[in-house]
Amino acid sequence: MIDTEPLLATLLEERKARRGLPPYLPQEDRAVAALLQSWYDEREPGANVRDVARMGGGASREQFIFTLERDGTERRYILRMDPTEGITETSRAREYEILRAFEGTLPVPAAVWLDIDADHFPCPAMIVEVVAGVTKPTSDQLSVTGLGTILGDPLRDIIRPQFLGHLATIHNFDWSTADLPSFTAPTDDPKQPTRWLIQFWKELLEQDAVTKEPVLRLATQWLEDNVPDCEKISVVHGDYRTGNYLFEEADGRITAILDWEMCYLGDLHADLAWAIQPVFGSHIDGVFRGSDLAPPAQFLAEYEAASGNRVDPAKLHYFTMFNAWKSYILVAALGVRAARQAHNHQDVLLTFLAATGPLFVDELARLLMMEESQ
């Protein structure tokens, strides 16, 4: 058994078991509409499902938006359903639990139904309410959401304090009193949170790598040899960046924090290093802004002020290395494998994202050379 969190170890074994399955056939709108209607017939007799449509984007889950009519009212919902394999290996139960835990504390979509064992839908699925907002300015028609997104002035100055304030709320949340049965607290020793994390992603790399990159082997060894202590175990979002929140374009108000599927309990520095990764930022007139919100020094200083948490430069450096390594595994191992096996509905997008793999190899090489020179 891999030395990682029990649920993650189970996910790894399930992924292995699915490797030999036939190509995944994307669900048709009509079939999904019938599944949704029968789901509500069992749970809310009299409710009517209509206007079912596939949503674009998303490199991991299939998503369908629909309208539900009941008791004379109409509301919009999203069905999130697993393909055979995706760019991440995650649990709908965990995503459902964390959304429920933060409801009323953070702006998050309301999670309303869960089919974790695929008793009704063909794959594990959950249903969440639709939240109004956009992930990028409507004037930006070129960039993939979150990659090279430019918020610009005055939006970035309006959004930044909200973005950092919500991140502070996540990191300071008392997870020990929340109803999170699918999460296991890594409390045996101060290195366990990050050691569990490394072992999970290392196993995914070994399962799914389609090329052998020497730099990845060196980075893996460095990460294993330099695991830092985690003095404060926090909820870590796992993909906190511009592109993973909705905001009202008219006034810049953040309406929902999205994409919690990679959430876990661990070191908060992982989220900070992720949000200021070069691939998620902007370079304008010689100034780099993490998530197009602020230069890293300003970003981190304002986070410290909002959260009361001190940023440790050594840990930030460690998770900068980790995040480049993790990003490579996502796009150049899991994503490529899922596309090649025809186990995902977004094979074209997964292949497109694989082109960013060399960027992360180059970043890892740069960081490792820095270590050698010290």
Rank of each mutant, 00 (worst) to 15 (best):
F280T: 06
F288A: 08
A306R: 01
N323I: 00
V287R: 14
V311S: 03
E304C: 06
E304P: 05
Y328W: 13
R289N: 13
M321L: 15
V287W: 13
A294K: 07
Y303Q: 02
K315V: 01
K315T: 00
P295Q: 12
G290V: 08
G290I: 06
G290Q: 07
S291Q: 10
A297P: 04
G308L: 00
F322I: 00
K315A: 08
G286K: 11
G290H: 10
Q298V: 14
S282L: 09
A314F: 07
Y303P: 04
F319S: 05
A305W: 01
V287A: 13
Y328Q: 03
G286D: 13
W325S: 07
A297F: 12
Q298A: 13
R310I: 09
E302Y: 01
E302Q: 10
H283G: 09
S291N: 10
F299G: 01
A305Y: 01
K315W: 04
G308P: 00
P278E: 15
F319L: 04
G290R: 06
F280S: 09
Y328V: 02
Q298F: 04
A305T: 07
A306C: 06
P278T: 11
D285L: 14
M321T: 14
P296N: 12
Y318G: 03
E304R: 03
A297C: 07
A301S: 12
P295S: 10
S307R: 00
L300V: 02
D312A: 13
K315N: 12
F299W: 09
Y318K: 01
G286P: 05
M321Q: 13
A324M: 05
V311P: 04
T320W: 10
L293R: 08
S291M: 09
P296Q: 11
E302N: 02
Y328G: 04
H317D: 14
G286M: 11
Y303L: 01
R310G: 11
Y328A: 03
L300H: 07
F299V: 02
A324L: 07
A301M: 02
V279W: 13
Y328E: 02
R310V: 12
M321N: 09
Y328P: 02
S327P: 02
V287G: 12
K315G: 02
A301W: 00
Y318L: 04
F322C: 03
S282P: 02
K315R: 15
A324C: 10
A301Y: 01
I284Y: 15
A297N: 14
W325C: 08
A314N: 11
M321W: 06
Y303A: 01
F322Q: 03
L316R: 10
S327I: 00
G308M: 00
A294M: 09
D312H: 11
H283T: 13
G281A: 12
Y303N: 02
G281I: 08
Q298I: 12
L300T: 01
L293M: 09
K326G: 03
V279D: 14
S291E: 07
T320P: 10
I284T: 15
E302D: 10
E304W: 04
F319N: 06
P278Y: 14
L300D: 05
S307Q: 00
P278I: 03
S291V: 06
S327W: 11
M321H: 11
G286N: 11
V311W: 02
P278N: 14
Y303S: 01
A294I: 05
R310W: 08
M321I: 15
G290K: 08
H283V: 14
L293E: 06
A305Q: 13
R310S: 15
F319I: 01
P295Y: 12
E304Q: 14
L316C: 08
N323W: 03
W325M: 08
